[in-house]
Design a protein around this nucleic acid. Structure first.
Length: 289
DNA sequence: CACCAGGCAAGCC
DNA sequence: GGCTTGCATGGT
């Protein structure tokens, strides 16, 4: 990868395995929107960013080398060799076919607290509405961020949300999920250390602790492990993954726990990345609808 | 062609 | 089974 800094923009060249559409359209994050033919704009870690891709050339607008190094390089998981992972996973015949459909997928390293709340909101919900609720949450309780003559909002921290009542949260129209959000904020505020500890725990142990949160079950915990804690062996099973796994590996019905067990033993430490290729493959091909 | 009523959506309790 | 809400769907 070639990194240059020119006119307040960071330009990346010769970066393999990176496609914005694959990264932002696989259900892992909810705060990025298409703002141009080839660009997306979003907010992460308290910073807004517009990022554009034309072919192999990626431009991060109006940012600094310092922010690139301390935020975006890590956020976009640029140190990971996805080519190697893809070739390892492609020993599986199903994945060999699925991987090319999402060849530019990267697992974003998102903020833990943000993923906890975002995936609590995702339960029994659809993406446009999840995005709306999160946008309302940020507009209502986040901090304003000025970027390129526009106003954006940070994701509100847990202390801010913990100070609210459940009824204060009704403005975001999260429905029955509002009490889960409040409970998660209280849990983080009560013992922040218990959650920063999760990074160093095994996937199983971290999953157990996440599932002790009100409103966090197996699927939501899996997403938090994968997207918020970078536990690449986590394999969240949602209805799409369930359908495609049943079709391609089980030749019939299977319960979620069996699917998760099977996937983790078959795909190992990169099961979660395999899950993303399978998810994208299922969506792109309208499988299991 | 509006409008309404029903179902329902990447789960969890 | 119930939960909130908004939206796609199909019927009037």
């Amino acid at each position: 990868m070639n990194i240059t800094y020119k006119d307040n923009n960071i330009i990346l060249e010769n970066l393999a395995d990176f496609k914005l559409r694959h990264i932002f359209d696989c259900g892992q994050s909810f705060r990025w929107n298409r703002t141009g033919e080839r660009s997306y704009t979003g907010v992460a870690k308290g910073h807004a960013l517009e990022i554009e891709q034309s072919g192999e050339r990626i431009t991060l607008f109006d940012t600094t080398p310092s922010d690139f190094e301390s935020i975006w390089y890590d956020y976009f998981d640029l140190s990971r060799d996805y080519s190697k992972i893809k070739s390892e996973l492609s020993r599986d015949t199903v994945l060999r076919e699925a991987v090319p459909f999402g060849s530019g997928i990267r697992i974003l390293k998102q903020d833990l607290w943000e993923t906890v709340v975002s995936f609590i909101i995702s339960a029994s919900n659809n993406i446009p509405r999840i995005k709306k609720i999160i946008e309302l949450l940020c507009k209502s309780f986040g901090e304003p961020i000025h970027y390129r003559d526009r106003l954006y909002y940070s994701f509100p921290d847990f202390r801010t949300l913990s100070a609210l009542s459940v009824s204060d949260l009704s403005v975001i129209r999260a429905g029955f999920r509002d009490k889960y959000i409040k409970a998660a904020a209280d849990a983080f505020a009560a013992d922040e250390g218990a959650f920063s500890e999760l990074y160093s725990l095994s996937t199983e142990e971290a999953e157990k602790r996440l599932m002790s949160l009100y409103g966090v079950g197996s699927k939501v915990a899996g997403c938090i492990l994968l997207f918020g804690l970078s536990k690449t062996d986590a394999f969240p099973v949602d209805v799409w993954i369930k359908r495609i796994m049943e079709a391609l590996y089980f030749n019939g019905s299977a319960d979620n726990a069996s699917i998760q067990r099977f996937a983790r033993s078959r795909f190992g430490k990169y099961a979660g990345i395999a899950q993303q290729y399978l998810f994208f493959y299922a969506r792109e091909n309208n499988l299991g609808v």
